[in-house]
Design a protein around this nucleic acid. Structure first.
Length: 268
DNA sequence: TCTGACCTGCGA
DNA sequence: TCGCAGGTCAGA
């Protein structure tokens, strides 16, 4: 389930494979993934272009290819895979990129929730909230966002129009590390809790990036390996297990149609 | 503001 | 065979 750390890991691993490569061919097996152009237009605009760089904005990957910018959202199960001589052709490959050097790159998406756009100028996502590890997010800005919308903390962290990049797994982990119950109202946090929340948002996301993200089902790195962060998660998918910090038991509750994991003994 | 649909594989 | 997993968005 690609959240910010998984997308950033993907970006870092794509760079040495793609940067400076010129696109020789693109095969699109699932045109439905393309959201603002058809397959012909996508191929026409990109074949012959060189990938100059890859940016990440929250959960979006922005490829810089001269004057055109393909943008990819990995959805729930989207992954980029580099070609491996020893492997069979993987299932659910929807887009194949071939470079002039002969290297290949595959976009695989088992559940087809991923999306691809093509922009002819650098894209601006007006509805997207602040990238939580960008310098734009300060303690003061976080406080403003918390006061702006009266909801519970779990839904706040997952609201992509406020903070964009945190998903279900890291929302539970961030709240656990902050000692804040997911049910708490955003306006109920005091200054000390807001500062701690700010620190833990950075700490948890950076920790996950350092460990190449979390693999539970579909996610794998560009090199075809699993992430390592699932080893360190303290709440996600641990309902009924003992808390790693106190004597409590990890509970599970559905909030906003998503499973939420927490410990009542050390989150208040 | 909230809920359900989209989608496929896995485990009970 | 059915429920569950969850990011996003349309519709209520």
């Amino acid at each position: 389930m690609p959240e910010l750390p998984e997308v950033e890991t993907t970006r870092r691993q794509l760079l040495p494979i793609c940067k400076g490569e010129t696109i020789a061919d693109i095969k699109i097996h699932q045109p439905v993934l393309l959201k603002n152009c058809d397959a012909e237009e996508f191929r026409y605009q990109l074949i012959g272009r060189t990938i100059d760089d890859i940016d990440r904005l929250s959960k979006y990957l922005i490829f810089r290819c001269g004057e055109v910018f393909p943008v990819v959202h990995l959805g729930m199960s989207g992954v980029f895979l580099k070609d491996r001589a020893d492997s069979k052709y993987p299932k659910h490959i929807h887009v194949e990129w071939t470079f002039e050097s002969g290297k290949q790159l595959f976009y695989q998406d088992m559940r087809r929730f991923g999306k691809i756009w093509l922009y002819k100028e650098y894209p601006v996502f007006e509805k997207l909230g602040i990238d939580p590890i960008s310098q734009t997010l300060t303690v003061e800005r976080l406080n403003e966002l918390l006061q702006k919308r009266r909801t519970n903390m779990k839904l706040f962290l997952m609201d992509q129009q406020k903070l964009s990049g945190i998903g279900n797994i890291y929302a539970s982990e961030i709240l656990f590390e902050s000692g804040i119950l997911p049910h708490r109202e955003t306006t109920s946090l005091d200054d000390k809790e807001i500062k701690l929340l700010y620190d833990k948002i950075h700490e948890v996301l950076q920790w996950a990036i350092d460990n190449f993200g979390t693999t539970y089902s579909a996610y794998q790195t560009v090199n075809g390996e699993a992430g390592k962060m699932q080893t360190y998660l303290k709440t996600y998918q641990r309902a009924g297990d003992s808390c790693k910090r106190c004597d409590g038991i990890i509970e599970k509750e559905v909030m906003g149609s998503r499973s939420t994991f927490f410990c009542r003994s050390c989150q208040f």
